[in-house]
C-alpha cells in the first residue's frame, strides 16, 4: 500500500512538467505503464496481469479457481462456434471475412484501418461481415455477438496481444483520443477510468475489488456473475460510465472504439485469455 502511494507521489512530481514529456509515443506510454504497475505490484509476474483481481487477491483467486472446472461461458462458446461455422443465406461464412479464416486472430484486434480511417474492433468486424453478406447486424453488447467473439477469442488463447499504431496521423489521433478518454474525469461522481484502475487498483470500492488497467481487455468477452451471461468490452465501458453517473456512449461509437484501441495497446505482449469470468 505504502509503496503504491510513493509511486503516485513520484508520478505526480514527474507530471509537474508535462510539456517536457509531451509527444510521447504509444510505445513509450506502454513501457511507462508496465513499469508503473510493476512497481505498484512487484510480486505479480507480468503475464498474471491478465487475470485482474485474481492476480492481486488470494481469496478472490481461490473462488475463481474453483469455478474453472465448469466455466459458465462454455455453452456460449460452443454456441458461438456453431454460429461462426453456419453459412449465411448466400452460402459464405464468417471465415471468408477474416485473415486465417478468423482462427487465432483475436490478438490483432482492434486495429486501425488506414483506408477507412477508423478503429476496427472484433465485434465491428463481425457485424460488418454479416452486412457485407446480406445479413442483419447483431446487437452489440451481449447475446450472439458475445458468443461469436468468445469463440474467436478461445481460438486465440495464449497468443500475445499485438496492437499496432501505424505511422499515420489519424491512427495516432485515434490512440490519443482513447488515452484522453481513459484519463478524463466524467459524470457527477467525477471519476475517470484511471481514478480506479490506475490510481487505486488492489483496493476495495465497497465490496468490489479494483483491477489494474494493465491486462484488462485480455479477458473479454467476459462472463460476469452480476450479468449472469457474457458481455462485450463496450458493455463494460457503458456500465463503468453509468456507475459514475456519466451518460454512457453507444457501443461501438468512435469514442469507445478509440478507448479500446488505447487500452488494448497498453496490454501488448500479454496473452489473450478471453473469454473469462469476473464477479
Amino acid at each position: 500500500m505504502l509503496k503504491a502511494k510513493v509511486i503516485l507521489v513520484a508520478l505526480g512530481a514527474a507530471l509537474a512538467v508535462p510539456q517536457a514529456l509531451a509527444g510521447a509515443t504509444p510505445e513509450e506510454d506502454r513501457k511507462e505503464t508496465v513499469e508503473y504497475f510493476k512497481q505498484m505490484f512487484p510480486d505479480v509476474p507480468f503475464e498474471e496481469f491478465v487475470n485482474g483481481q485474481y492476480a492481486l487477491n488470494e481469496d478472490r483467486r481461490k473462488q475463481w479457481e474453483s469455478m474453472q472446472d465448469f466455466p459458465p461461458y462454455e455453452f456460449a462458446v460452443a454456441e458461438g462456434q456453431e454460429m461462426f461455422e453456419t453459412p449465411f443465406a448466400n452460402g459464405k461464412t464468417y471465415a471468408s471475412c477474416f485473415e486465417n479464416g478468423g482462427i487465432g486472430i483475436r490478438q490483432n484486434y482492434p486495429y486501425f484501418d488506414t483506408e477507412k480511417n477508423e478503429v476496427i474492433t472484433l465485434e465491428l468486424a463481425i457485424n460488418r461481415c454479416r452486412e457485407a453478406n446480406g445479413e442483419e447486424p447483431l446487437k452489440w453488447k451481449k447475446g450472439a455477438i458475445a458468443s461469436i467473439s468468445a469463440y474467436m477469442a478461445s481460438t486465440s488463447q495464449g497468443k500475445p496481444i499485438n496492437i499496432k499504431v501505424p505511422d499515420d496521423p489519424d491512427a495516432l489521433a485515434a490512440y490519443q483520443d482513447g488515452k484522453e478518454f481513459y484519463y478524463s474525469r466524467r459524470g457527477q461522481l467525477n471519476f475517470s477510468c484511471a481514478s480506479c484502475h490506475v490510481q487505486n487498483p488492489g483496493k476495495w470500492i465497497r465490496a468490489d475489488f479494483l483491477s489494474p488497467a494493465l491486462g484488462q481487455p485480455a479477458n473479454f468477452p467476459v462472463h460476469r456473475s452480476k450479468w449472469g451471461e457474457l458481455g462485450t468490452l463496450h458493455r463494460r465501458f457503458a456500465g463503468c460510465n453509468n456507475n459514475v453517473r456519466a451518460e454512457p456512449l453507444p457501443a461501438q461509437s468512435e469514442e469507445y472504439r478509440n478507448l479500446e484501441y488505447f487500452l488494448t495497446y497498453m496490454s501488448n505482449g500479454l496473452p489473450v485469455v478471453g473469454p473469462a469470468t469476473r464477479p
Binding site: 508520478l11 507530471l15 508535462p18 514529456l21 509531451a22 510521447a24 513509450e28 506510454d29 506502454r30 513501457k31 511507462e32 505503464t33 508503473y36 488515452k179 484522453e180 484519463y183 478524463s184 474525469r185 466524467r186 475517470s192 484511471a194 481514478s195 490506475v198 490510481q199
Partner: peptide, 13 residues
C-alpha cells in the same frame, strides 16, 4: 476543465 486536467494522472504524457 478536463481538456487539460486529464493529464494530471496520465502515465507517459
Amino acid at each position: 476543465q478536463q481538456k487539460e486536467a486529464w493529464r494530471q494522472v496520465a502515465i507517459g504524457n
